[in-house]
């Protein structure tokens, strides 16, 4: 198997498993940890996690395909998630999303995650991010940005090096 984890990550994973009476419960937390470290969940990662949790690979793979946050391919260095849902739509998230697509030469009509040619940015429409009072809302990797105008979006992007 090509898949390798650092000793630090493996320790984190082992600690996570101890938090549950049944190993299988740790699968989402492990998938998060692996995706954070490696950018995506490869087939090898699925098999490694399954072995770790004494499961069949399908038990892990079916999670990767069910939960929208997990991806099977690498994404850009900065993943931008723009909220699509009603309150943000009323606040202009459609325009914000189109703005990103235009700047990065992506297709606003396409569903799912798209990555710019240089691999720096990925953009995606997601559902309500629980910050509807400050629409439109978006995230860059793990961080929230609220009340994002197109000017603010440009500034944020220019800070992503």
């Amino acid at each position: 198997m090509k898949f390798k984890v650092s000793p630090k990550l493996e320790k984190e994973i082992d600690d996570r498993i101890k938090n549950y009476p049944e190993k299988r419960s740790a699968s989402l937390m492990i998938l998060h940890a692996v995706q954070e470290a490696q950018g995506y969940i490869s087939q090898d990662a699925v098999e490694w996690i399954a072995a770790k949790l004494e499961l069949e690979p399908i038990n892990v793979y079916e999670l990767v395909t069910f939960y929208p946050m997990f991806r099977q391919e690498p994404a850009g260095k900065y993943v931008i998630k723009v909220c699509r849902t009603l309150s943000c739509a009323l606040g202009g998230s459609g325009q914000l999303f189109k703005h990103f697509c235009k700047k990065l030469k992506l297709d606003p009509k396409k569903h799912g995650l798209q990555t710019s040619k240089d691999g720096r940015f990925s953009v995606e429409f997601v559902e309500c991010l629980a910050s509807c009072g400050t629409a439109p809302v978006m995230m860059i990797n793990g961080d929230f940005y609220e009340g994002v105008t197109t000017e603010k979006a440009d500034k944020l992007m220019s800070k992503c090096k």
Binding site: L86, S87, E127, C128, A130, S131, G133
Partner: peptide
Amino acid sequence: DESEPGTFKDK
């Protein structure tokens, strides 16, 4: 889980 669209109180 705070996932009901419109809700941002638990956050």
